[in-house]
Computed example of a mutant assay.
Amino acid sequence: MSEAKVSHLSNYDLWESWKDGGQIEAKKQLIEQYLPIVDYVSNRLAIGLPKNVSKDDLASNGVMGLIDAIEKFDYKRGLQFETYASWRVRGAILDGLRQGDWVPRSVREKSKKIEEAYQQLEQRYLRNVTDAEMSQYLEISEKEFHQMLQDVAVTSVCSLEDPIRDEESETRLSLLIDEKAKNPDYKVNEFFLKESLVKGIEKLTEKERTVVSLFYYEDLSLSEIAEVMSLSPSRISQLHSKAILRLRGSLEKYKSQLLYN
């Protein structure tokens, strides 16, 4: 089929031409049509990343994820491609970031130290701990603690996408996906995961819960959240980092229950 004819096809016809007819021109048009998904996902993931991480690299990995999604998507099932593609694009970008070892070891160590501090102090006091208490526990000033939060903000992007165990590919986020499995082990793990996340979210401060809600459920950027909450972008970044680290601490506490035996 000629390029002129393909250009007038409907979205469904493009999928049909590519999947059933194997027409490369239809595939190219599908890629061009859904490229905004790559821009959207890569721009969101770019928030808080170090300056040495190129947005072009993020987009390049994202395009590979989009192409993979187009090749594997079954249009006959009536599912929404945008949702499917977003996860594929996001996964491809995160895989690229991990392979590039984009987070310095010192930053990962800071993140782990803060996460463990939250876990220890909240278990000791059975309440939200203050920045002053965290600073005292870590033996640093509050100003230095806030700077640590700013430094580790880059690690929160992949927190739920990171493997549960270093030697495995399964992530915490994968346990949230309903694959309609009948396996009772899956149901038990799903129950404990949701329970631990609910308990973790309940322990967050009101501002931290607001940031998490606006960022992950309303799809606002950190700068947009800053405008909504009348706070500086750096403060929103700190609140986001604190929330993610505390949630990771909650998941770590229930780790033995969350993992398959």
Rank of each mutant, 00 (worst) to 15 (best):
Ser2Asn: 03
Glu3Gln: 07
Ala4Pro: 06
Ser7Asn: 09
Ser7Pro: 00
Leu9Val: 00
Leu9Arg: 14
Asn11Asp: 13
Asn11Lys: 12
Leu14Phe: 06
Leu14Tyr: 11
Leu14Arg: 09
Trp15Leu: 02
Trp15Glu: 06
Ser17Tyr: 04
Trp18Met: 07
Gly21Leu: 08
Gly21Trp: 08
Gly21Asp: 08
Gly22Val: 13
Gln23Phe: 14
Ala26Met: 00
Gln29Met: 01
Gln29Glu: 06
Glu32Phe: 08
Gln33Lys: 06
Pro36Gly: 02
Pro36Glu: 05
Ile37His: 12
Tyr40Val: 07
Ser42Lys: 14
Arg44Trp: 09
Leu45Glu: 13
Gly48Tyr: 15
Leu49Phe: 06
Leu49Lys: 15
Leu49His: 14
Pro50Gln: 13
Pro50Ile: 06
Pro50Arg: 13
Lys51Arg: 14
Val53Cys: 00
Ser54Lys: 11
Leu58Tyr: 12
Asn61Leu: 06
Gly62Ala: 07
Val63Ala: 05
Val63Gly: 03
Ile67Val: 07
Asp68Arg: 14
Glu71Gly: 00
Glu71Val: 05
Lys72His: 14
Lys72Cys: 03
Phe73Tyr: 13
Phe73Arg: 08
Asp74Asn: 11
Asp74Glu: 08
Tyr75Lys: 04
Lys76Pro: 03
Leu79Glu: 11
Thr83Pro: 03
Tyr84Ile: 07
Ser86Glu: 05
Trp87Asp: 04
Arg88Phe: 00
Arg88His: 04
Arg90Glu: 00
Arg90Ala: 00
Ala92Ile: 09
Leu97Pro: 05
Arg98Lys: 08
Gln99Val: 03
Gln99Phe: 04
Asp101Asn: 14
Asp101Gln: 15
Trp102Ser: 11
Val103Phe: 15
Arg105Asn: 06
Arg108Asp: 12
Glu109Phe: 13
Lys110His: 01
Lys110Ile: 01
Lys113Asp: 06
Tyr118Thr: 01
Gln119Val: 02
Glu122Tyr: 03
Leu126Tyr: 10
Arg127Tyr: 01
Arg127Thr: 02
Arg127His: 01
Arg127Leu: 00
Thr130Cys: 06
Asp131Ala: 09
Asp131Ser: 12
Met134Trp: 15
Ser135Arg: 08
Gln136Phe: 08
Tyr137Ser: 06
Tyr137Glu: 15
Leu138Lys: 07
Gln147Tyr: 13
Val152Asp: 02
Ala153Thr: 01
Val154Met: 14
Ser156Gly: 03
Ser156Cys: 01
Val157Gln: 12
Ile164Trp: 12
Glu167Phe: 04
Glu168His: 12
Thr171Val: 04
Ser174Thr: 10
Ile177Gly: 08
Pro184Gly: 00
Ser196Glu: 00
Ser196Tyr: 03
Ser196His: 12
Leu197Ala: 02
Val198Leu: 15
Val198Gly: 09
Lys199Cys: 02
Ile201Val: 03
Leu204Tyr: 10
Glu208Ser: 01
Val212Thr: 10
Val212Ser: 01
Leu214Thr: 02
Leu214Ala: 13
Glu218Met: 15
Asp219Asn: 14
Leu222Lys: 15
Met229Glu: 13
Ser230Asn: 12
Ser232Met: 13
Ser232Asn: 07
Ser234Thr: 11
Ile236Phe: 14
Ile236Lys: 13
Leu239His: 04
Ile244Glu: 07
Leu245Ile: 02
Arg248Asp: 15
Ser250Gly: 00
Lys255Asp: 02
Leu258Gly: 03
Tyr260Lys: 15
